[in-house]
Design a protein around this nucleic acid. Structure first.
Length: 737
DNA sequence: AAAGACAATTTTTTT
DNA sequence: AATTGTCTTT
């Protein structure tokens, strides 16, 4: 077993750990995936367990795919029967296979977050609640938040009127989902947990089957996911979890870092293995990462080290503004590509806190004609035009889908407006029927005004005819293009200004290509069947069902991209698990990263972990950039260098460019370490981010300090929207808390 | 009912 | 700044 020989000591210990509960604390770049894959290979080779008995959970679909490939490289036996995927895809499969026990209709569809928010808006309006007291997104977050903790509406108690309303709306929302046959993301998990919990036969079957359960990125599991794992693993307790508490960055999505911190409490027999040798980064990068993460209190002790030598320092650059920052980054990239031997564009990554920040870099890269690829952001299946056409498809598969029908009825405009929809909805509520059934009943009763009757009739006919198409002997892509034509969406988009419509039409065509890829491509794993299957062997209608099932959970990395060698742009979150020789972390300013919200809500530890993730992506060289001024929401802000950068020992960082810059707004100069431009430690009792009150301007938050001594000035953003630079000693500021 | 002008608001992160 | 929703007009 040659793959065991190339492991270091702790990796070997992890791979060959006893079969009971195992927790592997894997620092960044310590060979985590390798251990996980080797463990599975080891199980298959030595324990003679079949792939059939293994359940492996990954964080993304992409990770699952890559892991399968790597695994297949290590072993000779077949992987048939192995369950590997994300929590969502595995739970989705369970629900498809046991839809009756899960009390779902066979053709249930998945509601993505956008659909969920739309549905929430509708529920709020319908309940006669003011959208300003409860915003759709607030309700959606409330519902998801509770579902992630395993709480249904009837579990909840209220302490005030507002929450009472939320609970009421949660109930209404759930009823709406049930009648429409819709399941949101967190519902997939919760429903699946309840399925196992309430059906002992099913539970025992899977407990018996999955003797070995392995989980990647365990630090990012939420309560329901952990409960699901515990339930499945209860019998054999052969639960092998891998993770790094320092890289837990999805707390906002319900992830519980406690899951990994307290794993040994839930499973007293736990063997814990620490992987502390880093194979990825230079010592300088690692030292920087350690310095940043050391400030966190809630973490398991561990010390990353490396044999790699530290030949290069980190590079810091303080730009004047966002443009200057982008210029610096892109010019540096040009230099790298030109001067350094064998540097490929895909060796270079630009990492930022939020998607919106990619724009400037894209602009400059385009100008210099450097190919790039942006990950994340608006995904293909999230695009409006794709959702528009998919609403027709979904309606064909599940006429009860009230979310899709409304979209299909109104896009493109076909004479059915708000008034008509309200009418149908009213009918639907009183009769407890779906919108589709209601529309049909109303047509039959002839109770509608002629004009309304006619437009509604032609809509219903249109959908029925589309549905009839699925009974023909068509290929899936042909069905797609036929329905796209009939939907009249193309002429509708054509009317949009600025060639935007052209893009949309391109995307529709792209969808046809996706259908071709789906049918001609590899065999696919279908949610409702255990084996891989050739989609073409299915009847057309089921092909469509299968396609929809695949897209809803696979929306991110599905699209075939141009294989061109390109610079990689992504958010820090999206970079987790990846590595690049050259990494640019940009927008490193307090207020951007860490973001304003996390500063006020004390979520700073998670932001710090995010910084740690970013830093540890770099193999050879790490560039840290920030800008003195930046446009945010159309306003120019002057933000200080990120506290995370300031946590890095100055001797690790080499400064490029002018370093300290003397500008009209910044005459700061108390040391030649350019990163200390603004001081953040208290000045006369005031700190960055403090909430203060000014007798004339009211309340505001301290953004920056400028200058020193008696002329020290303070930059404040007031809550009335104004921004002022005041001389600290004159401004009569009171600190609020 | 649909198109256009206007105002408001922002997710930071994603299965 | 730019998108999204709301209000107004046709």
């Amino acid at each position: 077993m040659s793959y065991l020989e190339s492991l270091n000591e702790s990796q070997f210990d992890a791979v060959t750990a006893p079969l009971g509960p195992v927790r592997v604390l894997a620092g960044a770049g310590s060979g985590k995936t390798r251990v996980l894959v080797s463990r599975i290979a080891w199980l298959l080779n030595t324990e003679q367990c079949r792939a059939h008995s293994i359940l492996a959970v990954t964080f993304t679909n992409k990770a699952a795919f890559e892991m399968k490939v790597r695994l297949q490289d290590l072993i000779q036996t077949s992987l048939k029967g192995l369950w590997m995927g994300t929590f969502h895809s595995l739970c989705h499969r369970l629900l498809r296979m046991h839809w009756q026990e899960a009390k779902l209709p066979q053709n249930f569809q998945i509601l993505d977050s956008d659909d969920q928010t739309r549905l929430c808006r509708r529920i709020i309006r319908e309940a006669g609640v003011d959208e300003k007291t409860i915003q759709p997104r607030e309700l959606a977050n409330y519902i998801s938040g509770h579902k992630e903790e395993g709480r249904r509406a009837h579990h909840l108690e209220f302490y005030d009127q507002h929450e009472a309303q939320l609970i009421e709306l949660y109930k209404l929302y759930q009823t709406a989902c049930e009648t429409a046959g819709l399941v949101d993301f967190s519902e997939i998990l919760l429903r699946s947990l309840e399925l196992l919990r309430d059906n002992s036969a099913i539970l025992e079957h899977y407990q018996e089957r999955f003797q070995f359960i392995l989980v990647d990125e365990f630090q990012d599991t939420n309560s329901v996911q952990y409960a699901w794992l515990k339930l499945l693993a209860r019998k054999h307790e052969r639960l092998f979890v891998v993770g790094d508490d320092d890289q837990s960055i999805y707390g906002w999505r319900g992830a519980k870092i406690e899951n990994i911190l307290n794993f040994d409490r839930d499973f007293p027999e736990t063997t814990t293995v620490r992987l502390e040798q880093n194979y990825r980064s230079t010592q300088a990068i690692l030292s920087a990462a350690n310095a940043v993460i050391a400030k966190n209190s809630e973490r398991l002790p561990k010390k990353l080290w490396t044999d790699n030598e530290s030949d290069q320092l980190l590079v810091g650059y303080r730009a004047t503004d966002g443009y200057d920052e982008a210029r610096f980054v892109v010019e540096t990239i040009q230099d790298l590509l030109k001067k350094e031997e064998g540097v490929r564009k895909s060796d270079i990554a630009i990492l930022y806190r939020s998607n919106a920040q990619s724009r400037l870099f894209e602009e400059f890269l385009m100008r210099k004609q450097i190919p790039y690829r942006v990950y994340g952001g608006l995904r293909f299946f999230d695009r409006a035009e794709i959702k528009d056409i998919l609403s027709y498809f979904r309606l064909i598969v599940n006429p009860k889908d009230d979310v899709s029908i409304e979209r299909a009825m109104t896009t493109p405009p076909k004479g059915i407006g708000q008034a008509t929809i309200n009418r149908i909805r009213e009918f639907a509520t009183t009769h407890g029927a779906s919108l589709w059934d209601s529309a049909n009943m109303m047509l039959e009763s002839q109770a509608l005004p002629t004009r309304t009757h006619n437009v509604l009739l032609s809509f219903v006919t249109q959908i029925n005819e589309m549905k009839a198409l699925t009974e023909n002997d068509l290929a899936l892509p042909d069905l797609f293009s036929e329905i796209i034509e009939r939907s009249q969406l193309k002429p509708h988009y054509k009317k949009e200004p600025l060639g935007r419509g052209e893009d949309r039409i391109d995307n529709l065509n792209e969808l046809i290509t996706a259908a071709e890829y789906f049918t001609n491509g590899e065999k696919v794993e279908l949610a409702f069947i255990e084996e891989e299957i050739d989609p073409l062997s299915l009847p057309l209608y089921e092909q469509l069902e299968a396609f929809l099932g695949q897209t809803s959970l696979n929306s991110s990395e599905n699209q075939a991209e141009i294989d061109e060698d390109s610079v990689q742009l992504m958010t820090l979150h999206a970079s987790k698990g990846l590595e690049f020789p050259y990494v640019f972390m940009v927008g490193l300013e307090d207020g951007l990263f860490p973001s304003d919200n996390s500063l006020s809500e004390r979520r700073i530890e998670e932001e710090r972990r995010l910084a740690y993730v970013g830093i540890t992506r770099a193999e050879k060289k790490l560039f840290l950039t920030s800008a003195e001024s930046r446009m945010i929401y159309g306003k120019t802000l002057y933000l200080p260098v990120s506290r995370f950068v300031r946590d890095i020992p100055p001797e690790l960082v080499e400064l490029e460019g002018p370093g300290i810059r003397v500008t009209p707004t910044s005459v700061n100069s108390n040391s030649n370490h350019a990163f200390n431009t603004p001081r953040t430690d208290g000045i006369e009792g005031f700190n960055l981010g403090d909430l203060v009150e000014h007798p004339k301007f009211g309340e505001g938050v301290i953004q920056n300090f400028e200058g020193s001594g008696p002329s020290t000035r303070v930059v404040i953003n007031f809550s009335n929207g104004g921004r002022k630079v005041l001389v600290l000693s004159f401004a009569k500021l009171t600190k609020l808390d």
